[in-house]
Nucleic acid binder design. Structure first.
Lengths: 205, 205
DNA sequence: TAGATTGTTAATCGATTAACAATC
DNA sequence: TAGATTGTTAATCGATTAACAATC
């Protein structure tokens, strides 16, 4: 498949479709249509059909999509038909919240370690984890073969930490630090900054 | 101000520019160019100039933009030249993290109350706040005139809570629940779901 | 003046929508 | 069959980039 030429914007919507479909499955539904799914996620039926059809013909005329089958296909496309090990960098409030968050279960991710460069924090327990020394981070990540990280350190420390993650072989960084990161082209970054999200709404008030 | 319709996608980038500019200001810089700002945020210089020029002529040929002046203008455009009161719904792990988060300071937001519908949690202290009963939520929000909310309740409770927020006059919801919300057109929603963000990256691994 | 950089126009590129034949 | 809904094409709409005159 020519995964290379699928626009980012389409990839960005697939997890939203997947989440809605999983919710429908939990409610015991068996099939849905582009129309119905579109109403759930706030996207036009035409766009949903077009997005999905980039990857194959998963629907049936007249009846729509099998929810179970479409979930299976989307999980495979997004590569969350497996469990990804994830490391957390930064054992502050946000690091704590992320480690204790239950929402990664069943969505393809499993936290395996948390690091901090503050010697005071190293050794402390967070949930079932002991905070590890950031000095050991690169070697530990390499030896575990971890490709996905969540970065929850202060802005001033974020770029240096990201550089280390890249060096350790991490290819996907979910960045909670309020700063834009510079990384090589083959490394993906997603940003979560609540202030940014709030500021995207106040314009309209 | 210009009555012309500004595309959402441009509004979405302005907070990122603002954050980068504030960082430059903190470092003592006085002026910048579209080129330099673009390198910081990973956006082309042409696009930055085009975005900014939607709102006025804030730069000078030959020298670029005054950082302080551009910050001032962007804050005004985004309406964060003031402090918005914010309520938090849900006193679970995420509610805790959000209330304790220091990153809203200086970015236009101030948390004023936290609510939960679990009577066990009502009255407990989180930071300097006492968790309030969700039954009182609508009246409290109305009387305080709060327009911005952060929703950190389980998926199953999120739509009902959002309906209440709308009823109370809230116009902007930052939703941490893993579900798409249905709200009237005049209410804005932004979504934060770490699993969604992670799934947007695994495709490329 | 000489060099730098904006604001803006036109061209290009990409995304969304509408429509409908195919077909379950 | 009759009705429903997909997958796809073509048209429309919108966003990005390139280029450069204006001008600090």
């Amino acid at each position: 498949m020519n995964a290379r030429k699928i626009p980012d914007i389409i990839i960005g919507r697939l997890p939203v479709y997947l989440r809605a479909l999983q919710r429908m499955a939990d409610m015991g539904l068996k099939t849905t249509s582009s129309q119905e799914l579109g109403e759930h996620v706030g996207i036009s039926a035409a766009q949903i059909r077009k997005d999905i059809s980039q990857f194959g013909e998963f629907g049936k005329q007249g009846t729509g999509y099998s929810i179970e089958y479409l979930i299976e296909q989307l999980r495979e496309i997004l590569k969350v038909d497996r469990i990804w090990d994830v490391v957390v960098i930064g054992a502050g409030d946000m690091g704590h919240a992320v480690v204790n968050y239950q929402g990664f279960n069943d969505r393809g991710f499993h936290i395996v370690a948390i690091f901090d460069n503050d010697k005071e924090k190293v050794g402390h327990e967070i949930g079932k984890f002991k905070v590890e020394d950031a000095e050991t981070m690169i070697e530990r990540i390499k030896s575990m073969g971890v490709k996905v990280a969540m970065l929850a350190v202060p802005a001033a420390a974020a770029q240096a930490a990201a550089d280390q993650l890249v060096q350790a072989g991490v290819r996907a960084i979910l960045n909670y630090a309020p700063i834009s990161l510079n990384v090589p082209n083959n490394v993906k970054v997603q940003y979560i900054d609540p202030s940014i999200h709030l500021q995207r709404m106040t314009f309209y008030l």
